[in-house]
């Protein structure tokens, strides 16, 4: 599978999905008006990856901002990961948040309570 690498913009995050390493990263700002358009290729890609995943998949989420429209798309990404985890593969989500950003921590906890995949909340101390 070809990796997906997308450079970030002021409204969309940097994406690095590498199936050969089982490492996925979403980083930066995710505030587009049309988030479905941005996230659909990622969700489709994960659908393919889900067919033959590595034993261990690590997902790093390092978001500075995301809008409510992205929040649903990010949930769709996590639902694919949940399916991979359900099929007896290791999946780990590292949810990064800046030390004073309780809103971002709470957002991670929202997903943790909805998705049955182990989450690690990691505080970034500057």
């Amino acid at each position: 599978m070809e990796p997906i690498i997308i450079e970030g913009t002021p409204k969309t995050p940097t994406i690095k999905f590498d199936s050969s390493k089982g490492e996925f990263e979403i980083k930066g700002r995710s505030i587009p008006e049309n988030s479905v358009e941005f996230y659909k290729p990622l969700v489709d890609w994960l659908d393919l990856y889900k067919e033959s995943p590595l034993n261990k998949t690590v997902v790093n989420i390092r978001l500075e901002y995301f809008n409510t429209s992205s929040s649903k798309c990010i949930l769709d990404v996590f639902k694919k990961l949940e399916a991979i985890h359900k099929a007896k593969n290791d999946v780990e989500v590292n949810w990064y948040y800046e030390e004073d950003d309780e809103d971002m921590l709470e957002a991670g906890e929202d997903y943790e309570s909805i998705i049955r995949v182990p989450f690690k909340m990691i505080e970034i101390v500057e």
Binding site: E33, V36, T68, S69, S71, K72, L75
Partner: peptide, 16 residues
């Protein structure tokens, strides 16, 4: 709403 409502035809998520 995050877990149960789809993005509407207008593109909003109903969460704003």
């Amino acid at each position: 709403i995050l877990n149960h409502q789809r993005i509407s035809s207008k593109g909003g998520g109903g969460l704003g």
